[in-house]
Computed example of a mutant assay.
Amino acid sequence: MPGDGGVVRLLDVVSVVPCADGFRFVRGAESLRVRGPLGPLADAVDRLTSGVPERVEGAPVVARVAAALAERGWLTADAPGYGVGEPVERQVGYLGMFGADPVAMQRRLERASVAVLGVGGVGAIVAQHLVGAGVRDLWLIDHDTVAPHNLNRQFVYRAADVGSPKADRAAAALTSTAPGARVRAVRAAVREPGDLDVLPADLDLLVVAADTPPDLPDRVWAWARGRGVPVCGAAVGLETGYWGPLLDPRRGHCLPCFEARRTSLLAPADVEVGAALTEPTRFSFGPVNTAVSAFLAYEVVRFLASGTCSIVNARRHLVFPSGRTEDLDGVACQCPPCGDG
């Protein structure tokens, strides 16, 4: 069981459903059915919900159920009530979907240092979710100013912000939402890897949400690889959008190898068209921007809280007209030992 001899209890995200011959514990798509006399089982449920000693003595039914739940990671040593009265109050329990220590995960979020490159249709929404999730050290990098056409989908801005630097106005808006957050605005374009040296060396994640110039991912990767900083991003087109991969140089991930894998799966015509279309579409639709941004934010928060997520060395695609999703998994780095890629 979790903990060090203290009290453990059922994760908040685990529901208990009575059955004719016992109880079913449900966590997302997973379930555990426990059969037996209803009286002792009901007592076990009550005690596990409120908390029991990690080493259960003299209560065999409680001990049996607790052992089965602990095997699945559905018990926590956290005291209930962390964050009560705070914006994260309803989130802490949800983090139990990612592991058995929601409070520790929430605290990791609050200690995380994250940078968002590009505070536009994707980056502005991701930044809002990061601050809402409890991230308190955020860097926003953007060289652009707020334009009227941004207001249909970049909800961090207001009409009065038109003409002002995006990074400045986004930082001000997010700080007003979370007064305890340190949101730093950097008004700059990334023309070469060294332009990112303004960021701290111990950055936990760099989110790339800008789409120009076309070789921006290569510039960012060159900087991140040399400093061991994880990187992820997303982009939205007319009919499709994607989020990921999240590449961590410390885990042997590699952007050139991921791109080689991706292009190897494309038809020759698709490679040719992709090489020709280097400019992002000038059209933009709020709902699809929001959808892809929310999926990316989900994975980013999960990664910062638990250390993993489904886009680690993987990319997820969403086809908007059909709602169909497609997955692309990367490979281990195939570059020469020098790591020059």
Results as ranks from 00 to 15, higher is better:
V190T: 08
R158I: 04
K166T: 06
R153V: 02
L140R: 02
A235S: 15
L151M: 11
A112D: 08
G194F: 09
A160S: 12
G118K: 04
G233W: 01
S164M: 14
V190D: 10
A172E: 13
Q128T: 11
L196C: 12
L138W: 03
A167C: 11
V220T: 04
I125R: 08
L174Q: 01
D195K: 08
V190R: 13
L117D: 00
T240C: 12
P179G: 13
A124V: 03
A178D: 12
V208W: 02
D168N: 12
G118M: 02
A178M: 10
Q154W: 02
V236C: 14
D211T: 08
G123Q: 03
G134E: 09
D144Q: 00
T175W: 11
D144K: 00
V207R: 08
V126R: 02
G226I: 05
K166I: 00
V162G: 04
P165S: 02
V231Y: 08
D195C: 09
V126G: 06
A133T: 05
G233L: 06
V126M: 06
A170L: 14
H143A: 14
R219K: 14
A160Y: 05
L130S: 08
G118E: 00
V229W: 08
C232R: 08
A127D: 05
R153N: 02
A201Q: 06
L205D: 07
A189M: 00
R153Q: 02
L203F: 07
V119C: 05
V156A: 01
D168W: 14
A115V: 01
A173C: 14
V183I: 06
D168V: 15
W139G: 01
P213E: 04
L151G: 05
A167I: 05
A172D: 12
V146C: 03
V231L: 15
L216V: 06
R187Y: 07
V146M: 02
N152K: 04
L196A: 14
A222L: 14
A201Y: 05
H149L: 07
D137E: 15
V131G: 10
G120R: 07
V190N: 12
V220C: 09
V116S: 00
V131K: 08
S113R: 00
A201N: 05
F155T: 11
V231M: 15
L130G: 07
A115W: 00
P213A: 13
A185S: 15
G118S: 04
A201E: 15
L196K: 10
L138M: 10
L117T: 03
L174R: 00
G194C: 09
D215Y: 09
P217Y: 11
R169N: 03
S176D: 14
W221D: 04
T212N: 10
R182P: 05
A167L: 12
P148Q: 04
A147C: 10
V156G: 00
P217K: 13
P200W: 10
K166F: 05
E192L: 06
